[in-house]
Nucleic acid binder design. Structure first.
Lengths: 216, 216
DNA sequence: CTGCACGCTGTGAGGGCGCTGAGGACGACC
DNA sequence: GGTCGTCCTCAGCGCCCTCACAGCGTGCAG
């Protein structure tokens, strides 16, 4: 998750809140930095302030779309005029929220956005007898609740959005862990190990030299 | 475009406005009728009121998603509480607008929703009865799964992108093997041997003095 | 038919890759 | 301050993959 916001208080509040939800979060404080980060890719979605030093949010998202980057963008602005909102959306943003906003609503809209980006879009993810509810933050296996830590949850969430596909450790590090912090690939192995103990050993296959695959 | 709204004045205002924008619009006045219409398919998106006779908008979208219908849903409601909004989105709606709303904003949000078309289909390589899925990292021969090591997979992947062409050992060493490390051409022969045992001997022809060719 | 060059394959060493238990760092809570 | 939970690093281990080697088979030219 990429947060582009120049008010440092709001930015770090968002970062903390989103991290608590299990997102890997990076923050950029200016328009150009945000554009670079978004270009580099690897983010599932972006929260974008409109009033930014160097480059406005409108212009940022317009350039991003012109360069064929399609990551979901939630625009954040103090302007609540109907034309401001329409302009933001027509520049290529996927959603628009006016400040001050409710944190609960932000999260719900973010979930809706992420759902839309995924190939399939159920509100509750289900693979085999595993079920994962992103809103309630709950996982069950054959109707029995499974207690997961925040990191384990984020990892399983990411894997369940692409059942049957092989996901590399690098990709997992990019999406489940914060890109800002350098983390050893071994951390992924460790957490895959934890997950296997909780959801069943054979459910999470290792593809040697390539990554991991959640058995569909 | 499907409009599910029981206030007839609002419904027909929406219908006229959207038709003026070039949309083909159907209107349903109750929950059950709306659900039926949405099930029937053929709509690009749906505007859905929450307060409906017969079946609430929440329940409608929940059932729709449970039945694996993924059409974009813009939810419309007089309730502007943050939890109402979050609930609507978590039921499976893609966007949420509170009444009274700006018509300009409604249109912009609708456009944003429609912009997010169907996600692109995964590409699968197929040659004869061989199929190779790069994302799932899976190979089948006449619908039977073939287990390949990572190097074997990379080799077959490269060959299947050039069916019928003769590919030299040097080219294979350059593309399938790490270009930095010097590897004997014999390694290619060895791996061609492994592949032949797994995908069928006659499928991978030797062109003496030139290279190998995958029979198309 | 003979000889040579090229390609095939069984064998085995080595090493890369992934798994795991132990434990330190950090923060939340009491 | 103590305790607990979580995150992540580290080091050791085991296994499977990778590939060099060498001997053998096979196509081709004369």
């Amino acid at each position: 998750m990429l947060v582009v916001e120049d008010e440092s208080r709001l930015a770090s509040a968002l970062q903390r809140g989103l991290q608590a939800e299990g997102f890997a979060v990076d923050v950029a404080a200016t328009g150009p930095k945000g554009l670079d980060a978004a270009r580099h890719g690897g983010y599932d979605a972006m929260i974008l302030d409109v009033m930014l030093p160097g480059l406005s949010g409108y212009e940022l998202v317009r350039r991003l779309r012109a360069e064929e980057h399609w990551l979901p963008v939630l625009m954040l602005s103090a302007k609540d005029g109907e034309y401001d909102q329409a302009d933001g959306l027509d520049c290529g943003a996927d959603d628009y929220l006016t400040k001050p906003f409710s944190y609960v609503v932000l999260l719900a809209r973010l979930r809706a956005l992420l759902r839309r980006g995924a190939p399939e879009r159920p509100t509750v993810l289900a693979v085999g007898d595993l079920r994962l509810d992103p809103a309630r933050r709950r996982v069950t296996r054959a109707d029995a609740e499974v207690a997961l830590t925040s990191r384990e949850f984020a990892l399983l969430d990411y894997l369940m959005r692409r059942p049957g596909e092989v996901v590399s450790k690098i990709e997992l590090l990019d999406h489940v862990w914060d890109a800002g912090v350098e983390t050893a690939p071994n951390a992924v192995e460790v957490y895959v190990g934890y997950l296997r103990r909780k959801i069943g050993r054979e459910r999470l296959e290792t593809v040697r030299g390539a990554g991991y695959r959640l058995a569909p």
